[in-house]
Design a binder for these strands. Structure first.
Lengths: 205, 205, 205, 205
DNA sequence: CATGAATGAGGGTTCATTCAT
DNA sequence: GATGAATGAACCCTCATTCAT
């Protein structure tokens, strides 16, 4: 009998266990980034990791579980980076700048993760055909939306639909990353500066 | 003699032939929109169309061919709508407005097509793992970029990196559509107006 | 209602009918010669003939019928050539020479037919897995066997098992043809002469 | 990690692995012998072996790989039997006798293998339509040809084209086997004796 | 006479998963 | 802890054949 339930309640050596899981998640991330979600079979992931297919089945409840871990890990790591830096900002304008900068920093330093995340979020569905990770995306928009609303109350920003702007900022960031993902030579710092200016002008009072 | 070659030199009855192709393309579009690229098998598409799997193979050279037709048709129809209306605009500012409005009109009237297009463009790869339709997306950005550059030369727009803004506009439009795709009750007209204002402020001199 | 029963009892224009049948049989022969029995599908044959697949179904009861016609035609033509020349020989020795010469002449002038015949005879089976054309091959051996037996009674040949020698002559001829089929530059005349000498020495009194 | 590569570096349990491979190769051999190359699908082979289709795919890289193993194994085993006995012969005449005897012994004791080999060698082609195993056949002829040439230099044999005789001997052996394959009651020993006499007379000085 | 259109069966192959060891 | 072995379902595609026109 094996402990198929992921993440918690594991029995034996938690170090080996964790190491293997990390290794597999890394391999899955890289494989998805390379060939895309639809082509990323367990066989390919296992091959990339240099392990047997059934090792994956041993450590994860299934393909769904594995992908969920991949996405969760990517988002958690990102969030851990963003959150403290957001907290230190004093105005909402500043907070918006920080948000864009740090997010572009994070993904910019993790190209593979960005590609994998994007591909999985787009491609992965539940058995009834609905997107499984749409909510992850939604959460990031909500954070921005709240920030923008607060800025309007503060009088930092003009009057606009905070949801529209939040979505557009989010998409603007993804646009930057898409460009850079296709062309790694692109100067992401400069792009970020342009983007910040763009939105500053668009929402200032 | 099979009609596998999809472009020209058709011998067969062009009415029945065309009707079937249209039917299959429609079924493929709807299936992909519903369950996503990765889950859209020929079997599912055929089932959706109420026909036998092999009918698809008869009318298309293969799955790749079918999907290419789907994407091509979606883009061609869209472009046929956008182009004439762009031509009638007199300033680049106006042209940018028209671009956003008409594109959101087109996709807004073709929700299924939007979902299918997005899923295929993201998911479909060549056998060596590279995206097959990235170039389609690239083209739409180029049009915007040219428009913005011309506006800068005209003195209509301030100084900015036209590529950054073009990408961000493109992404802004997709953001609107994503929102609306998830929530059909969303007021796309109002969203469009907000978006136009946003970019007007961001790029005006 | 179509006249699917082949060869006889056909209704309308027998000239067009016959011409089409000849064309199809030719295409089938060439296709099998080129790619081998196992790879010679009706689709490929039709493509080679530049006609629609269903034309074949119209003129022949099925794939089996077509292949049977191919083999029959090849053997009948060959036999029509061999028989009269055999009749004019006076001794069995001479008859054996003539047999080898004329058979190598016939196949030598019809490389495609030889390849097709060999491939079909080897590959074609009835639905229960038994060879369908083994009997054709058997017949040619029987002719040789009778010839050899008569020669023994005449006192032209030494004492041997006529079946063994008949089979070996037959195989010797096929060996010559196989060699030549692979290497069309081979001097078939010279090969024939060597072969005749070989069997002369082997069976003379 | 799948074991698709068939040759070396096997990690897996070599006993189970080897046993399965042997079992599948045997089933493939028997199936081809029974129904012919063109009708020997993986489904039929699997059914014959009493296993699932995908087990074959697990142990072999594909149908081509499996058939290659079948042919290789058949030829290797045969050659292992022939070679040492050829070495012990002192004259070329004797060597020719041994060759015919031992080959007819080998195949005579392996009727199924003979049928399978013949069918695969005839039917199996590369994707461009060329025979894949013609070279195996060629090799056996070359051995005979060398033997005959040496016998001519020795003064054991008369002057003749060694290639013609080599091919004819090869074909003579196959003729014997074909006869016997169709009629297992045939006295192969007696047939062999007749064949040896035939060629002795044909090539002696 | 001829053929486009359609079909179900079956082709080889890959899939995620299970299980005994 | 780990994995070779195995499986049935599903993949896309080609097959020989039928039928309405």
């Amino acid at each position: 009998m094996q402990p198929k339930i992921s993440a918690v309640g594991r029995k034996r050596n938690p170090f080996i266990e964790a190491a293997r899981r990390v290794q597999i998640i890394k391999a899955a991330t890289e494989t998805v980034a390379e060939v895309g979600y639809a082509q990323a079979s367990l066989a390919r992931i296992a091959q990339h990791a240099g392990i047997s297919k059934s090792v994956i089945s041993y450590h994860f409840a299934g393909k769904d579980d594995l992908l969920e871990q991949v996405v969760t890990q990517i988002f958690d790591d990102g969030w851990a980076l963003i959150e403290p830096r957001l907290a230190s900002a004093r105005t909402e304008t500043e907070r918006l700048h920080v948000h864009m900068e740090v997010e572009l920093d994070y993904w910019g330093a993790n190209r593979t993760r960005y590609l994998a995340m994007a591909s999985i979020v787009d491609g992965h569905r539940t058995s009834d055909g609905k997107p499984r990770f749409a909510q992850k995306w939604e959460e990031t928009v909500t954070v921005l939306q709240d920030l923008l609303s607060k800025g309007q109350e503060n009088g930092e920003f003009r009057d606009f639909d905070p949801r529209v702007v939040a979505v557009t900022v989010r998409q603007g960031i993804e646009g930057a990353l898409d460009q850079w993902a296709r062309n790694p030579d692109l100067d992401l710092k400069a792009y970020t500066a342009e983007l910040i200016t763009l939105f500053d002008l668009a929402i200032r009072k």
